[in-house]
């Protein structure tokens, strides 16, 4: 149990570090948002789960926290990305969606 907890904690820390590195390294806002969101959501999940396995008394609260992160983090990032898209921020030209065929943004 405790070994699984440590494994989850290390994995979570690794994903969080990778997410921070992605935010630092990616070229424009939308790329940074997707690097930050996916990696930090997974990292926070595993970190919280590791803490919950190490202290089984807290497991119910930890699961609630995980549900909360699962709802809030993607929604917040999607809203940020939508605002950035609507504000027309500077775009890295290799990943910009405008030039591609069949790419519609009506749902934004």
């Amino acid at each position: 149990m405790i070994i699984a907890a440590y494994v989850f904690m290390v994995l979570g820390g690794l994903f969080l570090a990778l997410g921070g590195f992605g935010v630092f390294r990616m070229p424009d806002v939308l790329n940074r948002i997707q690097a930050g969101t996916k990696a930090t959501t997974l990292g926070a999940f595993s970190l919280a789960l590791g803490v919950g396995l190490a202290n089984p008394d807290w497991l119910v609260k930890i699961i609630l926290i995980i549900v909360f992160i699962a709802v809030t983090n993607p929604v917040g990032s999607s809203v940020l990305a939508r605002a950035a898209y609507k504000a027309g921020e500077a775009r890295f030209e290799k990943t910009a969606p405008e030039g591609k065929e069949g790419d519609s943004n009506e749902c934004v």
Binding site: L64, V67, F68, V71, T72, P74, V75, S78, V79
Partner: peptide
């Protein structure tokens, strides 16, 4: 849609 329904889910929590 995403923002409205996400906020309602979070509201209960």
């Amino acid at each position: 849609f995403i923002l409205k329904h996400g906020a309602r889910l979070t509201f209960g929590l």
